[in-house]
Design a protein around this nucleic acid. Structure first.
Length: 425
RNA sequence: GCGGGCGUAGCGUAGUGGUUAACGCGUCUGGUUGUGGCCCAGAAGAUCGCGGGUUCGAACCCCGCCGCUCGCCCCA
């Protein structure tokens, strides 16, 4: 390799042109979370590795092969945050949020790090919008969390998406189901794909998720968890479904929906494009995790939340045709070519800015034509031109750039008030 | 981690073995005496992703690496 630097694999620069999308997303997040009574929390970029090893599950791919784990100079094992939920639960415990009015509604936007092979919509560093509601088992909480995300996407102009909803039941009945599922698959094990043979041991629920042709014949007849839910989980699931219906959110039951994290129980969901079959289509997903806080050493505390990748959300916005007008860099551009005027020019710009008017000064060493071009490119509505003639009189020429270019001369001291009035009109 | 496709100026492309790598957009400068947008002219800008090999000669063929991308795994 030469010494030419580039952004590390799987990372990206967010250039000015893309910032309006990020602005829009962050603005909408603020609005939506406010509508649902969430409060913001920010957690560190890294945690003790154990938070995720115990919280996310140390056999999950995220922890086992994707986590950026490192030892610091003091010998502590740390990990760059690969997902938000365990970190927020850790904070819930650490700050005694059990003593706050329950349930506690928290949201954040956080950088996530996963060592994964990059693709479109899949990066080693990405940003996630995370919402968590801790301390309630109410199925309406599940529906609300889903509704938050739906409202966000709708607000951002994303079309052609749908909710996929599933239920993983509670831990004990799910274990019993997994045994039944393994009993069903065991006689056919030899004929399954290599992936599925591995899944049989590691993560049997994923057997039903396989796309391999060799596995397809066995999928249909396999017992489905959603058909065998415990009465409590079944009632819970149905309430969630009805509540979403009442919110006019399109939901498809996905009997095979499995999430990649160990801690989920009962409700799991994803929001996916309905008109695009890409592999990284999921723009947001989450579920209920009533056992997680206990795993992290706290008292039994139910939880429900989601993560949504903002990079993917933006890709969906673009796919839905959302665009933004280019914002002007300034309202006023000061063109100057006068001997000894530097201080006066800089002072005028300062006065304009103090009056809340974005202003840019042309470069002293450039011709008037070049500076005027700069004024044009800046998108400024007015140019203030200060040449030798004007400066000698303590004046400036104020030129309206929007139309034919009418201009009038006035004292430099009068310019801020004049422009403030003009720009307000 | 596995398999496929791609990689030419800031961006989009042309060029598929033979002199100083082309075009559009963009950028910069100019079109006389101090003024933008349109037009015109000129300029800058590319070690053809990087390294090695084949050849008299490679952007073009071969290999390795890097990056992007599609699928798998998995996930946001």
């Amino acid at each position: 390799m030469t010494t030419r630097f580039q952004a590390p694999r799987g990372t990206q620069d967010v250039l000015p042109d893309m910032q309006p999308y990020w602005q829009a997303v962050n603005d909408a997040i603020r609005v939506v979370t406010r509508l649902h009574g969430f409060r913001r929390i920010d957690t560190p970029a890294f945690e003790y590795a154990g938070v995720f090893e115990k919280g996310s599950g140390d056999t999950t791919d995220i922890v086992e092969k994707e986590m950026y784990t490192f030892e610091d100079r003091g010998g502590e094992r740390l990990a760059l945050t690969p997902e938000g939920t365990p970190a927020i639960c850790r904070a819930y415990l650490e700050h005694g949020m059990a003593s706050w009015p329950q349930p506690v509604r928290l949201y954040t936007t956080h950088q996530m790090f996963r060592y994964d092979r990059p693709q479109k919509g899949r990066y080693r560093q990405h940003t996630q919008f995370d919402c968590e509601i801790l301390g309630s088992t109410d199925p309406l909480i599940d529906a609300e969390v889903i509704a938050v995300l739906w409202r966000l996407y709708t607000m951002l102009g994303i079309r052609n998406i749908g909710v996929r909803l599933g239920s993983l039941d509670d831990l004990a009945p799910r274990r019993a189901y997994v045994e039944r599922l393994k009993d069903y698959y065991r006689p056919h094990l030899e004929k399954l794909s290599e992936d599925s043979q591995r899944r049989f041991e590691r993560n049997p629920l994923r057997l039903l998720d396989s796309k391999d042709e060799r596995d397809l014949p066995y999928k249909d007849a396999a017992p489905k968890l959603i058909d065998e839910l415990s009465p409590e989980a079944k009632a819970h699931h149905e309430t969630v479904l009805e509540a979403l219906g009442a919110s006019e959110i399109p939901v498809a039951i996905d009997p095979l929906l499995v999430r990649g994290l160990d801690y989920y129980n009962r409700t799991v969901f994803e929001i996916v494009p309905t008109d695009d079959e890409r592999a990284q289509g999921t723009i947001g997903g989450g579920g209920r995790y009533d056992g997680l806080i206990e795993i992290l050493g706290g008292p039994p505390t139910p939880g429900m939340g989601f993560g949504s990748g903002i990079e993917r959300v933006i890709l969906e916005m673009q796919r839905s045709g959302v665009t933004f007008d280019e914002a002007a860099a300034a309202d006023v551009y000061i063109v100057h070519r006068a001997e000894g005027a530097a201080a006066a020019v800089f002072g005028l710009a300062s006065k304009l800015r103090s009056a809340g008017i974005p202003a840019i000064c042309g470069e002293s060493n450039k011709s008037m034509k070049a500076q005027m071009r700069g004024a044009n490119h800046s998108g400024a509505r007015f140019a203030v031109i200060i040449g030798d003639d004007e400066f000698a009189k303590g004046a400036g020429m104020v030129k309206d750039l929007s139309g034919e270019g009418e201009q009038q001369q006035m004292g430099i001291a009068d310019i801020p008030a004049y422009l403030a009035a003009k720009l307000r009109a």
